[in-house]
């Protein structure tokens, strides 16, 4: 399968990239690692007239601490850098751990953090070849008005299968978005729209430029990913638990994110609240897991039974809480 024809421009600077995006607003798409975009193009899921190549662009390829102690990661930082970064290994090990669970090493060598965060939502009825899709009516995500995964469904529930998004959300990260006119910083929780057909707030002309992660202190975070193979697979469900302890072994400031069961990773505040100030025993774990289970509503849009995905939310929650607590205590 060939790629469609397009203009290809490789800007040297961020400004240049922004003005290009502005000039060809709506018709341009950025190409960073390309590990997802080129597949979408081959499948004609997108038909941009202009592709803006960012691989050679300087200025967004860093991982560094700022003066305030926050970690700033340029959107073009490769996943491989993240998994092998000493700062990240030291201060945000869960981010490194999650990164190592993305795809396979050669993909991580070129894929970027910006690309992973803005990964389009996925669905077995959508991520298919043009021929495959020609055999059915256009779904909501393709501009139609039906959903093949949920009969009579009115909303697109395509899944956010980013591995990094839930971890970064649990770490309280935000993203910097730039355009020719302006620059804005958005908390990751607000970056995702929850809409399968338009999963994030990036507007035409805007570029995801940077990820900002506040200092995590003595907290510990754990990512539990549901996948079938030991590699390659997108998550079928994901749980991130980040917490600290109050010194007596009780949980403090827990953040729990549920992901890969709907269009956006979501913090489950109710579950977090159950943990606050509590010593964790099996009963409490069961309660927390039950809340997560109730909040997870996977539908039949990935290649795995939603019954199982939902069930695993419960199991993975318990595992993540237990492990995060142990790690936090050890910290």
């Amino acid at each position: 399968m060939q790629l469609p024809r397009f203009d290809f421009i490789q800007p040297a600077t961020i400004d240049e990239a922004c003005s290009l995006l502005d000039e060809r607003k709506g018709d341009a798409t950025v190409l960073a690692g390309g590990t997802d975009l080129l597949i979408e193009l081959r499948r004609r899921l997108r038909k941009p007239g202009c592709v803006i190549g960012l691989k050679e662009m300087r200025g967004l390829d860093y991982i560094q601490k700022d003066d305030g102690g926050d970690l700033r990661i340029g959107a073009l930082a490769r996943l491989q850098w993240i998994e092998s970064s000493p700062i990240i290994a030291e201060e945000y090990p869960a981010l490194a751990q999650a990164t190592r669970l993305v795809a396979v090493p050669p993909i991580r060598r070129v894929a970027t953090i910006g690309g992973n965060l803005s990964l389009d939502t996925r669905c077995i009825y959508y991520n298919q070849s043009e021929f495959w899709r020609s055999a059915q009516a256009d779904c909501i995500k393709l501009g139609g008005d039906i959903c093949h995964a949920v009969p009579k469904g009115r909303r697109c529930l395509a899944v956010c299968q980013s591995d990094l998004a839930p971890v970064l959300m649990a770490l309280g990260a935000s993203v910097k978005i730039v355009s020719a006119e302006a620059e804005r910083t958005v908390a990751l929780a607000d970056f995702f729209t929850g809409k399968g057909e338009k999963p994030n707030v990036l507007a035409p002309g805007e570029l995801l430029a940077e990820v900002i992660i506040p200092s995590d202190g003595q907290r510990a975070a754990v990512y539990e990913k549901l996948r079938i193979r030991e590699g390659m697979d997108f998550p079928l469900a994901g749980i991130v638990v980040s917490l600290g302890t109050d010194g007596q072994g009780a949980a403090a400031g827990a953040r729990i994110v549920l992901s890969a069961v709907g269009p956006a990773p979501t913090r489950i505040v109710e579950a977090e609240g159950l943990l606050e100030g509590k010593r964790i025993d099996d009963d409490l774990l069961e309660q927390v897991a039950q809340v997560m289970f109730e909040r997870a509503h996977p539908v039949a849009n990935l290649a795995m039974d939603p019954w199982y995905r939902r069930k695993m939310v419960k199991v993975l929650t318990k595992r993540a809480v237990r492990q995060a607590l142990e790690t936090a205590k050890a910290n």
């Binding site: 080129l38 993909i107 070129v110």
Partner: peptide, 21 residues
Amino acid sequence: GTCTVLLDGAAVRSCLLLAME
């Protein structure tokens, strides 16, 4: 992975890279 080449010594997929890149 059958399209793998070395790019500056690293194994990458040549089907996911534009020639111009």
